[in-house]
Amino acid sequence: MAGRRRAARLALRGVSKRFGGLQAVSDVSFDVAAGEIHALIGPNGAGKTTIFNMIAGMIRPDSGQILLDDIPLVGRRPDQICRAGVGRTFQIVRPFSQLTLLENVAVGALSWTDDIDTARAHAREMLALLGLGGRAEALPGEITLPDRKCLEVARALATRPKLLMLDEVMAGLRPAETDRMVAVFRRINRDTGVTILLIEHVMRAVMALSDRVLVLNNGRVIADGSPREVTRDPEVLACYLGSEDLG
């Protein structure tokens, strides 16, 4: 498995979404090159998760195009988009609580294999990769929240994504756990080449991981550049980062 390259390019073109009177996402365009790691940051309500949900097919944009390599994603169902190569985690973890960790992850692997034994074997690999190898037969309720976040990641990775979307997987983790998670993503990105798009508030992780950072505010992209550039942008400092220590 290691060494097999599977990366996809993501492009958003003029994507907009309105919820009632709220323009959640407004004419957003950006590109994520194959194999790169991009972070999506911004204050709460900026539209980050809405963008994730539109890419994953859970919400249909009012207008605009979303392309994975050159495949248009708008109008496809979430399961089809998953099979097209997009794996995602949920901000609030959503484990299958009556299934073991192994079964949880095997569900993801069944998106590319019909064989349950193959899926289980792959699920074991993914659990081991995320440091959960010893808990395969546990139920999600029996492990810690940081471990459940790892489970969420293992499940998404088991689908063999070309684009991995991580929604605040570092939130609530201690610094040491954050560093472990950062190391895992670096390794996955290096080993498989997978493109990663992450929503993150933990700037320590954003700075350590990202090739580029996109800053959203009120549904618009207000900055797009390297972590260093973005964190010096006066507009970004004003609306989001403030005087926060950027570690």
Binding site: R77, R83, P95, F96, A156, T159
Partner: peptide, 14 residues
């Protein structure tokens, strides 16, 4: 079983 537990999460996993 995945659908029974959480159908949106299941759908996101293909």
């Amino acid at each position: 079983k995945a659908i029974r537990e959480d159908q949106e999460a299941a759908e996101a996993l293909g």
